[in-house]
Design a protein around this nucleic acid. Structure first.
Lengths: 250, 250
DNA sequence: CGGCCCGTTGATCGAACTCAATTCGCGTGG
DNA sequence: CCACGCGAATTGAGTTCGATCAACGGGCCG
């Protein structure tokens, strides 16, 4: 918690130094627009496991994930839950124009959010096209990701689902590190087995079994439960049922 | 085919009389903006089963479904396919700023599209905020629908999946007819059993079996293979695993 | 009439679920 | 320091739901 507060202080108010400055909803803003945003923004930090907002709750802010990871989940009355979004740094939370949250938002790791008061943000959106433009672009990207995930949920086997999730996390991690993807990829899983199960529409036992199977078959290596090494990325892509050729897909 | 061409001629050029005028991407346009759009638009008709565009193909238009239904599908190399979108009248096709189609688009019924040449449309989007605003709104709605569908794909049983699909189609049909949803709902399924299976992540045999089971249990009535009667909508919602109370959900 | 498409139904199989026991890692308190 | 407890993860045994393979029925058109 102290650590988190330090982070918040450290990030402070300056959009210019923000780590997600050029990827978030504010990416296209000019400096005067940033100044406007700074007046309606504030930071909030969450510990791993903490709930940001419950589905149906009134939501008087929107915002961006600055660091850490959050998940968007839907739950049925009998308790079955499905993750419908994985929010990474720079991803946007909330929907302008909507009163209530449509999903549960939970921090899966310690997390910092840059929040904008909703009303003034909506006003700004009407006036400055840069924000709406960027939000449209980001929403279209999310829609593509959601559709990609529908294929995973609807048609892939448990093994392929795990491989798909690992390859997505690995790819993201590699791009963050500006890794050319040469050599083995190494990263930490930001999700518990249960969260992976919720994302993939599986049970946690099946997730565990398939992780063990991929390890046994040499597709992945595990140091501890969370630290993963991918010796051959194209092999993993193959297991995911995606086209193998290491090419970056559309 | 003759029927289709008649439709096209009938719709002709006048945006003012367009059946989707107030719901499509052009919903918020002023009359001068509509005039601009009319200069870059043209109609195309497709017969049931015809492919509008293949994934990966260069796409030099975007557009709206005017009448009929189209589906967005993704296919793996081994032939497994997943429908990732069901395009109804007023829904938007294509992504501004993207060169190639990301999905296969297929007409599942006879269909008419209002197409805009892509380059000029993109230019208009930059100049007139009304279009981008509406497109953002529509994209956010689609994202919500996709996430709703992820819950269906990931966590619902075959029976619940069928009930979910039927309730969505029934609800849409009722709103089109401005039906207050009192009394039994009656509609025609616009999808083959196979298309339903592709949407739901099932096989067509399972779809057929569950349709028979719902009929046997009195949840639905079938006249022929496509004509459906829902005697008790809240019962159907219950079978779908959604909250039963006939209320209109968020 | 025969072929074709769409849909239904039956029999069997297997992948993933469920229930249950056990292990691992880690912090906490005696 | 070790014992203890707890949550996360693994592994096993048995069951089940939906997939697969296969046969059959009905409507439509040539």
């Amino acid at each position: 918690m102290n650590k988190l507060n330090d982070d918040v202080l450290h990030i402070s108010q300056d959009c210019g130094n923000c780590p997600i400055r050029h990827r978030a909803v504010c990416a296209r803003c000019e400096s005067d627009e940033l100044e406007q945003l700074e007046e309606i923004k504030y930071y909030r930090s969450f510990e791993a496991g903490q709930t940001v907002i419950w589905s149906g709750d009134r939501m008087d802010f929107v915002g961006s994930v600055v660091s850490g990871i959050a998940s968007l989940t839907q739950t049925m009355e009998d308790g079955r839950t499905q993750m419908v979004g994985l929010l990474l740094p720079s991803d946007f939370v909330g929907r302008p124009g909507r009163m209530a949250a449509a999903y549960d938002v939970v921090a899966t790791t310690d997390m910092v959010m840059c929040c904008f008061r909703k009303k003034p943000f909506e006003l700004m959106m009407e006036q400055t096209p840069h924000i709406a433009q960027r939000l449209l672009e980001m929403t279209l990207d999310e829609l593509d990701a959601a559709r990609e995930w529908m294929l995973v949920l609807g048609r892939k086997t448990a093994r392929e689902k795990i491989a798909s999730l690992l390859s997505i996390i690995a790819r993201r991690d590699a791009t963050l590190k500006l890794d050319g993807m040469q050599g083995p990829l190494v990263f930490d899983l930001p999700l518990t087995r249960e969260a992976m199960a919720d994302y993939l529409g599986l049970t946690l036992e099946t997730v565990s079994r398939q992780m063990s199977a991929l390890k046994r078959d040499g597709v992945i290596e595990l140091q501890g439960k969370r630290h993963v090494t991918i010796p051959d990325f194209s092999r993993l892509l193959n297991e995911a049922g995606d086209d193998a050729d290491g090419g970056i897909m559309a």
